[in-house]
Design a protein around this nucleic acid. Structure first.
Length: 496
RNA sequence: GGCGCCGUGGCCAAGUGGUAAGGCAGAGGACUGCAAAUCCUUUAUCCCCGGUUCGAAUCCGGGCGGCGCCUCCA
């Protein structure tokens, strides 16, 4: 059973068949960097991370490009207000996005192109479209794409051209269009563009590229003529991606992308996120609050990408606990002493059966299969997580029942956790968060020793006082037959 | 008006024909000095009404309810 993905273009699940499995070409639409990215942006970006990691987990070679849009109306306006050029204005936000991506455990993509570095290519593409009579220059020196000359227009969004509202809202910007539905490839220069360095010379006149054009050029140049996957938020289906298809295919004569995946928008505390509702949350804010990064990652990944997902504080707490359960399980396996025992089950294991071995190894094999089956079904991460936690339950029960465990059994269980975490990235991130410096570690050990003495003296109030002291510093103790263990806990809602 | 999505236990959420995964929360129990972690037990008329079928949360029809996109917002 192979991976199947829901292609927006055909509105159906299709087998994933890249042109070259050694180099799957993927382009994901990135943020416009005129401000800090919000939590909704990161639902999409974490989905990109999931696609990236899962394809590599499946054995594909992946070439993944995510752009930064560093020139558009809003960017120009914001740069003017700040009194700096667009390059100087946007670069800190690009770096912030990368920092936040790291903080949320995203594996780095191969390339993060900035639109302004590709203007020469954009001019070339526009020229090609003009030569092919798919675009026209208006009196002011702007260039528009003539959608009536491109028969496939509307195929991605399923729009009937006659139905697209030929609206009343014709702004000054659009003056000169043959048809209001035509979209800008090149916008003639305005004084404010010059002010912030957002203007380039082109054969038909000085100006700046249209938004849609940027992604076409970066995708074509950095990924290839035909992308295996093109990813983005659902809002981009129309017009952004529709226009990318028209430009790219109009110029190259080849399909721009074989498969399009679109992520449903995130809701926040039950409402659509918007600045006016005051529920506009940036990742930066959450990180500054000290909210558990693994919890944020878990919540944003926990629902399948085409399902509605509601980001909430309550959900963050549930995510925090879920991650802890997984990490605690891994830690429990690690410290479980192994026994030099023969596995009875190994005797009657069938040749070539990967599910052979003891109960733990067999449960791990089932979990792996369940995980992959769910992920293969259009990246159904909820089902995949279900398979993992079912395994955690089974294995914990087994560990409770048995005194010791064979090394091969323990290793099979640990390998399962490590394997799925190469896709999920949750344990990895939690480990980074739980890390403590040696000084703190020494202090904790000293406190634990003091408490152990108090317990030997049966001085329970003193023992509890020490435990509370540690607890207030985010250190949780667990007494067991082999002594006291401790762990650092993160928190989902530090304010609460 | 056009296109589309969703409605499963207190909350979140899998499951698309054979009588309900998983996470969080709650209750009882085991373990513990008390906890924590873990385990055991426990909590579902699958929005409503019809229909198809031996059999439907799952298919069809009709309602009700929530939501998204329809020109630059991931």
């Amino acid at each position: 059973m192979g991976l199947r993905l829901h292609n927006t273009l055909t509105r159906a699940a299709e087998p994933f068949e890249p042109q070259d499995p050694e180099r799957v070409g993927i382009y994901g639409c990135g943020p416009t960097i005129y401000g800090h990215a919000h939590i909704g942006n990161f639902r999409t970006f974490l989905f990109y991370d999931l696609v990236h990691r899962y394809l590599e987990w499946k054995g594909y070679g992946v070439h993944f490009v995510m752009n930064f849009t560093d020139v558009d109306d809003k960017t120009i306006r914001a740069a003017r207000e700040a009194g700096v050029g667009i390059g100087e204005f946007t670069e800190p936000f690009a770096e912030a996005v990368l920092e936040e991506a790291d903080a949320l455990g995203m594996a780095r993509f191969d390339l993060y192109p900035r639109a302004t570095a590709y203007v020469d290519g954009m001019i070339e593409l526009v020229q090609t479209l003009l030569d092919r009579k798919l675009a026209y220059v208006t009196e002011d020196g702007s260039v528009f794409f003539d959608i009536s000359a491109f028969p496939g227009y509307g195929k991605l969004s399923g729009k009937d051209l006659e139905q697209v509202r030929t609206g009343e809202r014709v702004s000054g910007d659009d003056y000169g269009k043959d048809d209001v539905r035509d979209f800008a490839l090149w916008k003639a220069v305005k004084p404010e563009d010059e002010e912030v360095g957002a203007a380039w010379d082109a054969p038909w006149g000085r100006g700046r590229p249209g938004w849609h054009l940027e992604c076409s050029v970066m995708g074509l140049r950095e990924v290839g003529t035909t992308l295996d996957l093109h990813l983005g938020g659902e809002d981009l289906i129309f017009p952004h991606h529709e226009d990318e298809i028209a430009q790219s295919e109009g110029a190259t004569g080849h399909p721009f992308a074989r498969c399009w995946l679109h992520v449903k928008h995130l809701r926040v505390e039950g409402s659509k996120m918007s600045k006016s509702l005051g529920n506009f949350i940036t990742v930066r804010e959450l990180l500054d609050e000290g909210v558990s990064r693994a919890a944020i990652r878990h919540q944003l990944l926990s629902a399948q990408y085409r399902r509605e997902l509601n980001f909430s504080r309550a959900g963050l707490e549930a995510s925090e606990k879920a991650v802890a359960r997984l990490v605690d399980f891994r830690d429990r396996l690690r410290r479980r002493p192994v026994e030099e025992v023969e596995m009875d089950e190994a005797q009657d294991s069938t040749e070539g059966q990967p599910s052979s071995g003891g109960p733990l190894a067999r449960a791990a094999a089932r979990a792996r299969e369940g995980f992959e089956t769910a992920m293969d079904d259009d990246l159904n991460i909820s089902g995949a997580l279900g398979a993992v936690f079912t395994f955690v339950n089974e294995a914990n029960a087994h560990l409770d029942r048995e005194r010791g465990v064979a090394a091969a059994e323990r290793d099979a269980a640990l390998a399962l956790v490590a394997s799925v975490d190469r896709v999920l990235g949750l344990v990895e991130l939690a480990d980074r968060e739980r890390g403590v410096d040696p000084e703190v570690e020494a202090w904790v050990q000293e406190r634990i020793e003091a408490r152990a003495q108090a317990r030997r003296d049966r001085d329970w109030s003193r023992a509890d006082a020490i435990r509370d002291e540690l607890s207030s510093r985010g250190i949780v103790l667990e007494d067991g037959p082999d002594g006291t263990r401790w762990k650092r806990v993160t928190t989902a809602s530090p304010g609460a």
